[in-house]
């Protein structure tokens, strides 16, 4: 049975047409689905009984409770949701004083095969629907407290563009969650045509996984560099107006002896010249069978200082939830490997 949750207002209008309900019902349904925090069609109490009956006969509400939750000593929570393909996806809730960030997944597994990524080891199992993406926000205990959303969980968001854009529409529309797009960041490894479409159709922030400014080195880390090289991604970014309302940031995982040298600082400064951006340095959490190691805290700190000295705002992302394997893919991959 089809889900109501995850439908846009236009799609809900189609539902009302199909069921012969008054057209204003679509907005009422949207309000119950996204504005009010309900979990069943029966809870939509301003709809007539016959309308609710018709909806129940033809649609399911469409949210899904989490199957497991783990809490870190630092307050980070990792939620595990079962999906339609019977595999798990992960959602991280990261509280930080008055900021409550949720990191959502967009695919079950991933196709991109980055060398440092645990999710990639699961292979690709399927795309999430807009409803499954939004469910990760709707069905967690902290739902009403969320201030920020990052599309940085399992999967490459822009490899599942249509549902991602649909979920963004629902999150940012007045009839939906009415959230500011400035509180949402979508991450990508740089799938160029999809990135261009995302920039055209959404106002959310963009985060690009960079990880090395050198072409050959980046190819070793990220096969996508073979077809969508970083210089083309940066050229596209240069053509957009970032730095005011909308931001672009670059994610940079620090690997010992590989991408943490003064030459990297110099090259980053060169390639990012003219782009108002921020670099987030990330400690690498080693995964099985990886030839990569994490840079020392001293190296990361010196790298940050060197970039800041060059005029690029650079921060070190605090590692959160390490005791519960909160980094993307770790928990569900462990569960999957255990199962197999």
């Amino acid at each position: 049975m089809e889900s109501l949750f995850g439908k846009t207002l236009d799609e809900l209008r189609d539902v009302t047409v199909i069921l012969g309900l008054p057209s204003y019902t679509a907005k009422q349904i949207a309000d119950w689905l996204y504005g009010k925090h309900v979990f069943s069609i029966d809870d939509m109490t301003n709809l007539s009984l016959s309308a609710r009956k018709q909806l129940k006969e033809n649609y399911k509400f469409g949210t899904e409770a989490c199957s497991k939750v783990q809490t870190s000593i630092d307050g980070t929570k990792k939620y595990l949701f079962n999906t339609s393909v019977n595999k798990y996806i992960e959602t991280a809730y990261i509280p930080d004083s008055d900021r409550h960030t949720v990191c959502v997944s967009t695919q079950v597994g991933c196709k991109m095969g980055c060398l440092f990524c645990m999710t990639g080891k699961q292979g690709f199992q399927g795309n999430l629907t807009a409803g499954e993406i939004l469910n990760q926000l709707h069905s967690i205990e902290e739902s009403s407290r969320i201030t920020n959303i990052v599309y940085m969980g399992m999967g490459e968001p822009l490899d599942n563009l249509e549902p991602v854009l649909k979920s963004l529409e629902i999150l940012t529309s007045e009839w939906g969650y009415a959230m500011s797009p400035r509180r949402i960041t979508v991450s990508t490894i740089g799938l160029l045509p999809a990135m261009r479409e995302f920039l055209e159709k959404s106002e959310a922030h963009l985060a690009v996984s960079l990880h090395s400014p050198f072409e050959e080195e980046r190819k070793m880390l990220m096969p996508v560099q073979q077809v969508y090289p970083l210089n083309e991604v940066l050229q596209e970014i240069r053509s957009w107006d970032f730095g005011k309302q909308r931001r672009v940031s670059f994610e940079y995982i620090m690997f010992r002896g590989l991408n943490d040298t003064p030459e990297h600082v110099k090259e980053l400064t060169k390639i990012l010249s003219g782009i108002r951006c921020r670099i987030n340095l990330i400690r690498f959490h080693p995964i099985p069978d990886t030839p990569l190691d994490t840079s020392s805290d001293e190296t990361i700190s010196a790298f940050k200082d060197a970039l800041n000295d060059k005029g690029i705002t650079t921060t070190i992302r605090a590692s959160r939830g390490e005791d519960i394997y909160a980094a993307c893919g770790l928990l569900s991959t462990k569960k999957l490997l255990k199962k197999s």
Binding site: M112, M220, V227, D289, T290
Partner: peptide
């Protein structure tokens, strides 16, 4: 993963992924 286990330097591994 197998190649890395077998000590192949990872700069000798060139990947093209279909997505």
């Amino acid at each position: 993963d197998i190649l890395i286990e077998r000590d192949i330097p990872f700069n000798h591994i060139i990947s093209e992924i279909y997505f």
